[in-house]
Amino acid sequence: MINIRSLYQEDRSTRRALLILLKKRGKISIQEAAEQLGISGVAVRRHIHELQKDQYVQTNIQRQSAGRPTYLYSLTEKAGALFANGYDAIVNDLLDEVKDEFGDGQVSRLFHRRREKWLQRHEDTFRGLDLEKRVERLAQLQEQEGYMVKVEKRGDRTFVFEEANCPIYQVAVRYRQACQCELSLFQALLAAPVARTECIADGGRKCRYTINSGQA
Rank of each mutant, 00 (worst) to 15 (best):
A178I: 00
A192Y: 02
V149E: 03
D156V: 13
C179D: 01
V160Y: 14
F159A: 05
L183R: 12
G155P: 13
C179N: 03
L183P: 04
F161Y: 14
F159T: 04
Q180A: 09
A164K: 03
E145F: 01
E143Y: 01
P193T: 13
K150C: 01
K153P: 07
F159R: 06
G146W: 02
E162C: 07
E152V: 15
A195W: 05
R174Y: 01
A178F: 06
E143A: 08
P167H: 11
L185D: 06
C181L: 10
R154C: 06
Y175D: 02
N165D: 12
Y147W: 03
Q177R: 08
R176W: 08
L190P: 00
K150H: 12
I168D: 04
Q144I: 06
V171M: 06
Y175M: 02
Q144D: 07
Q187E: 15
D156K: 12
C181A: 11
C181K: 10
E152L: 15
S184L: 12
Y175T: 03
Q142C: 04
L183G: 07
R176F: 10
K150Q: 14
E163H: 09
A191V: 12
R157C: 08
E145I: 01
M148I: 09
G155F: 14
R157N: 15
V173M: 06
V151N: 12
L185P: 09
K153C: 13
V173S: 00
E152T: 15
V160L: 12
E162W: 03
Y175A: 04
E182M: 09
A188P: 00
M148C: 10
A188C: 03
S184C: 08
R174D: 01
C179A: 06
P193L: 13
C166Q: 09
V160I: 15
V149A: 04
E163T: 08
Y147R: 11
E162Q: 11
Y175G: 02
K150W: 00
R154S: 13
Q180R: 11
L183N: 08
T158F: 14
G146M: 05
K150A: 13
